[in-house]
Write a protein that binds this DNA or RNA. Structure first.
Lengths: 355, 355
DNA sequence: ATGAAAGCGCTAACAA
DNA sequence: TTGTTAGCGCTTTCAT
């Protein structure tokens, strides 16, 4: 519990500066003031061309003077266009995972940037799928948004499929299955895991471990890619399921890596950069040299990956491009066009945690 | 540019499953179906007590069957309650700073969690203050939100003050000035900088540097705290202005720390954990031992701080508590109560980057 | 170029 | 307990 330091507030003036100033809260108020009709004010404020340029400027000046801006709820109800995109993060497979997952947060930030640039507001909703499985329909069916972006499929693939059959303006970040209905943008996770593992093997790793829980489909695919690459090379992979959700990552990783009990592995594929960072530190504290004795490779290429010591080699997901593509596709879908899914190839970013 | 792998979509069924199924999009539609009035349906769906339990359940079942949910825009317009909190991040002093700043993102995640738990949706808006300085009023004056949370004051202190004089349901994360109008929640940044620096001095540091640009008021205060502590000890502080905004942090830090040109400093106070992380790595690459030759202390205590190598000593800001307090205060303000600002004391988290 | 009038879909006060 | 009625504040035909 945090102690709060209490602080005196300054005096707050709730009374208007001029007592004779009429409050102008509606178009009608402003219309009366300007001596025109509400319709004209509406057109003027919207910058419509069919209104006299002089009256328009007079009205706009008046609106500015009184700090008036039209009520968006009314506007949206009437025009049947909200200018809002819903962003939903389903937290199905791991309830402990909060919205604070750094990868989601980074993608969210990128989405916010792109949506803002396209003139949309962003409504964020942390959905906790329960038995009713209406977490998605709450967003799509409420008339609150023009479109919806889902970040991560969690274990809700089927729910998303069902909604997608009736609701078009939706784009999902995640994994792609051939023939699926919903439009998805994502990284080829299998390929990512494979590339990472092939690289480790090529540089001499033989005792491989995959670090990360496979509850969500994306990390599961990364693991599959790792296993596939190992198999090709006649090797096996030890799976150490570590939950990236909470702040215990460090301890979990320490436990998984045997708490200093010798050099069990010489090649570690981590399910995410965050897990990789923990591994880096734990290995260091165990006195193992990276990358000489153990190589570590992450997944995501979050900005922090370049700032670890040693700088983390990792499988890069194109977060910025991904966000841009999602917004583009969503806009197309809102406009009634149909769009194809996009699976983006991951790329290896080699820094100093691998040979 | 990323290559997109094109993928075939599955067939999409846009026709309803039963062609004789009537579309039910409004309360009135459902009312007709149920043989009651729209008012009753409204009450039933809202779970109001004054409606017959049997009719209520019949109506709810009917609504579920037809996948009907009331239009939120209409509901909100009528009830004059939106259930939405606007979250604004002003990017005044550093345009390059995107919403992807990890501290903001972490606070945002915490806010999302707390707001969701309180039944609010969260509308995110990245504001780029320009000459008109109406970025805030766009949120407060549009009738789109029940309240507004501003994350960071940037260089817009006065703008926020002006709005706060007329708009009550607003809480701001940032710095507190005695007598200010707007309700702020934040950390005592001066004290934080002071604590960090005193600690370094107590453990032997004499050649001090502060790493971070002081464009925003918060980091400026941290710097002041550092200078004050140094002054008390008869020392001076070298200011190395590094921008934490972009991905060049590493290079900037390397340049600031002299690119290996010897041990200029033995105590580094960083403006944020991210900057500290870069410093850690740069110093390591320059062959300096931490904390033996040079001590480093960060600011924020983001989750990653525990995962660096060596684990980062830092000045902790209570992000979770801060978010919770902001939401509490905002709810109180929405309910018409007035609230005091809260300045939270920072605390030193000592890990291994200091002695 | 502007005004009048009809809703957008819902909620809530008032009746019954 | 339910129906009726009157809007919430705006946009948009349709007239003029």
């Amino acid at each position: 519990m945090v102690e709060k330091l209490k602080v005196e507030e300054g005096v707050e003036t709730s009374a208007p500066l001029f007592t004779d100033e009429i409050e102008v809260r509606t178009l009608a108020d402003l219309a009366r003031l300007a001596g025109v009709s509400a319709g004209t004010v509406s057109r003027a404020l919207a910058g419509k061309s069919l209104v006299n340029v002089e009256t328009r400027e007079r009205i706009q000046a008046l609106a500015r003077k009184h700090g008036f801006r039209p009520n968006q709820m009314a506007s949206k109800l009437r025009s049947r266009r909200t200018g809002v995109i819903g962003v939903v993060i389903p937290l199905g497979h791991d309830r402990r995972q909060h919205i604070s997952d750094p990868f989601f947060l980074t993608l969210l930030g990128a989405l916010a940037d792109h949506l803002t640039e396209s003139g949309y507001d962003l409504m964020l909703s942390r959905a906790i799928p329960d038995e009713t499985s209406d977490w998605l329909e709450r967003m799509t069916g409420s008339g609150m948004t023009d479109g919806v972006i889902v970040i991560g499929q969690s274990d809700q693939f089927e729910v998303i499929e069902k909604v997608a059959a009736q609701y078009r303006p939706m784009v999902v970040w995640g994994h792609h299955r051939p023939g699926q209905t919903h439009c998805v943008v994502g990284t080829d996770n299998f390929l990512g895991g494979k590339l990472a593992t092939e690289r480790l093997i090529r540089t001499g790793a033989r005792r491989l471990a995959f670090l990360g829980a496979t509850g969500g489909i994306e990390i599961a695919k990364r693991f599959e890619g790792t296993v596939a690459a190992a198999k090709t090379a006649g090797l096996t992979v030890t799976h150490l399921p570590v939950h990236m959700a909470d702040e215990q990552v460090g301890h979990e990783v320490a436990a998984a890596l045997g708490n200093g009990s010798g050099t069990d592995f010489d090649g570690i594929v981590a399910g995410s950069d965050l897990i990789a960072m923990s591994a880096l530190r734990v290995l260091y504290e165990n006195g193992q040299r990276i990358p000489e004795e153990v190589q570590v490779i992450g997944f995501d290429d979050l900005p922090i990956a370049a700032q670890t010591f040693p700088p983390l080699s990792t499988v890069r997901q194109e977060i910025q491009d991904g966000a841009r593509i999602m917004v583009e596709k969503l806009k197309a879908r809102i406009a009634g066009q149909s769009t194809e899914s996009a699976v983006m190839p991951p790329s290896l970013v080699l820094r100093a945690s691998t040979r």
